[in-house]
Simulated scan of single mutants.
Amino acid sequence: CAVASDRQYDAASIAKVMIMEGVLRRAEGLRRGLTRWELANVRPMITRSDNASAVRLWTDLGRGYLSRFLSRAGTSRTVLGPKGYFGLTRTTADDQMRLLDVLTDARSFLKTRGYGLRLLTEVRGDQRWGVPSGMPRGLTAHVKNGWLPRATHGWRVHSVGAFTGPARTYRIVVLTHDNPTMAYGVRTIERIAQAVHRGLARGRGLPPTPDPATTVSERSDGSAPYGPLPGWDEPEQGATP
């Protein structure tokens, strides 16, 4: 099921999943494992949302390679951010589902998807809010979030996750902006996630998590600056630059 799944949003730190997948796919194409340098950057980029590591990998992969990877993944409305601003990549819920599918589909072209899924289970505790809220017992959550305030459209607060278990696998993507605070966005996402988990688990979802107003920082994920970028016109809502 989907609502406005083709609407574009600034990706913020969920773009790091795309970067990770690009690194894994490039290594496979070269018929090698990840280098020591790649390992030293991929892990902190995912598990603690380290921006310096993300910029290094984004730059190393290059826009050409990332564009080809997105095409291979089947995305149609994801547009890479300008220069080094990976957090200003424009994306949709549909495309984020396709990128999660790269990690969860046994027929995926990404053979090292298990490593990527494992990293998403190791995201540190204070960044595991969002779509895992209300997850039934017996499932494992693989999650990545983004939280970015800007001068237009307020807080972008996003959560993408895959949920795997012995009996089933499913994915949830919630992208939002125009949130007055980060906590408001987190609360919105978690209420949606609780309803989805409850429906899929026939009412056996876990109790809601604590009120995010008391547990969520109002600090940006730092994936893009607050104001406009010099020499770059911000795209209109839903427009492709």
Rank of each mutant, 00 (worst) to 15 (best):
G125I: 03
R43V: 15
F109A: 13
A4E: 15
L34F: 08
Y184C: 06
T35H: 01
W232R: 02
A106I: 07
L24F: 11
P225E: 08
D6G: 14
K83V: 10
M45I: 04
P230L: 14
G165R: 12
T214P: 01
S53L: 09
R31Y: 08
T140F: 06
R137P: 04
L80E: 01
D221C: 04
P241N: 14
V23K: 01
W129R: 01
P44L: 03
G161L: 00
G87Y: 06
T164K: 09
T47M: 00
D101N: 15
A73S: 12
L66T: 14
S5I: 02
A213C: 11
A93W: 00
E218F: 07
V143D: 08
G125T: 13
V3K: 11
T140S: 13
D221P: 05
R26K: 09
Q8K: 15
R150L: 12
C1L: 09
S13G: 06
Y170A: 12
L88A: 04
V216H: 07
Y9S: 02
N179E: 15
T89M: 05
Y9H: 13
P212Q: 08
Y85D: 07
P235S: 08
T59W: 04
G22E: 00
T164Q: 10
R90P: 01
R25T: 09
A12C: 02
D6K: 12
R118T: 10
D50Q: 10
Q127A: 08
A224Q: 00
Q96P: 06
V173F: 02
G161V: 05
P212M: 06
W147A: 14
T215P: 01
A40C: 04
L66P: 08
M135A: 11
L70N: 05
L100Q: 09
R202C: 08
T169W: 08
